[in-house]
Simulated scan of single mutants.
Amino acid sequence: MPRHLLLRLEAPLMAFGRETIDNFGIIRDFPALSMITGLLANALGWRREETGKHDRLQERLVLGARLERPGTRLQDNQNARLSKDDKGWTTKGKPEERAGGAGTYESPHRRFRDYHADLSMLVALRLEPTDEPPTLDDLIAALDHPARPLFIGRKPCLPSRRLFAGWHEGESVSHVLRSVPLPNDSPEGARLQWPDGEGTLPGDRALDLCDERNWTSGVHGGWRPIREGRIRAEEESA
């Protein structure tokens, strides 16, 4: 059976980002395919300009996630007073200027960012094909000795524990997520999300998800089919 790599995502704050609406940075319940791609690429030391590497890694990833402890959500309100000649720093490599007339400089530069607090997520993934570099073993080496500091979603979200959580063999991603024992603090079970075609669960539902990034243009587009379901502690399969 295929070998799957397990990641444990835990941090005081995490952000599984989704589509930004105006100045609101909202989050989703599960990590996007693009977010895991970026996390692994950062550990490998790849630069943003190496878009071909990012696109190929994203194409090869087959992953699912299990939300074991949902935690709580909180919103950070960021305010900065910017005058006419001031500019806001961005990760795009271009400064962000204020738009509008002179009156806009009387109000603050505002951003709202949502976060998960005290959440615990298990991720199961494999690469197809398995022998193309980077391999799963290359990813483990990079995660344990990353080229740069790692973060889960946004730069302030530093992991609170080792990301590598072991190996597990399974016929599909959903099989792995079902068969890994649940922690003791998840007596009510867990929610699962996995790619369509990687198994089914009684009562699960099929959805279309937009979480793949075009690393050249820097935007998300297209939809991929996924499934979501729930397991309880007594329903875990060996």
Results as ranks from 00 to 15, higher is better:
P2D: 15
A11P: 00
L13D: 00
N23S: 08
G25D: 10
G25C: 04
R28D: 13
F30L: 06
A32K: 04
M35I: 06
M35N: 05
N42F: 01
L44W: 07
R48T: 07
L57A: 10
L57T: 08
Q58K: 05
V62C: 14
E68Q: 15
G71Y: 01
D76E: 08
D76S: 09
D85G: 03
D86L: 03
G88Q: 02
G88H: 04
T90G: 02
T90N: 06
T91Q: 14
G93Q: 00
E96A: 15
G101A: 08
G103I: 09
S107R: 15
R113C: 14
Y115R: 00
H116C: 12
L119A: 15
S120D: 13
V123C: 05
L125K: 07
T135Q: 12
D138Q: 06
L139V: 01
A142C: 12
D144K: 14
A147G: 06
R148V: 10
K155N: 07
P159L: 12
R162V: 07
L163W: 11
A165R: 10
W167P: 12
E171V: 05
V173L: 10
S174F: 02
S174P: 02
H175E: 12
L177V: 04
R178F: 02
R178A: 01
S179P: 03
V180H: 06
P181E: 02
D185H: 08
R191S: 11
Q193L: 14
G197Y: 01
L201E: 06
D208Y: 04
L209T: 06
L209K: 05
R213Q: 14
N214C: 15
S217V: 13
H220I: 01
R227S: 11
G229N: 11
G229K: 09
R230M: 13
E235S: 14
S237T: 15
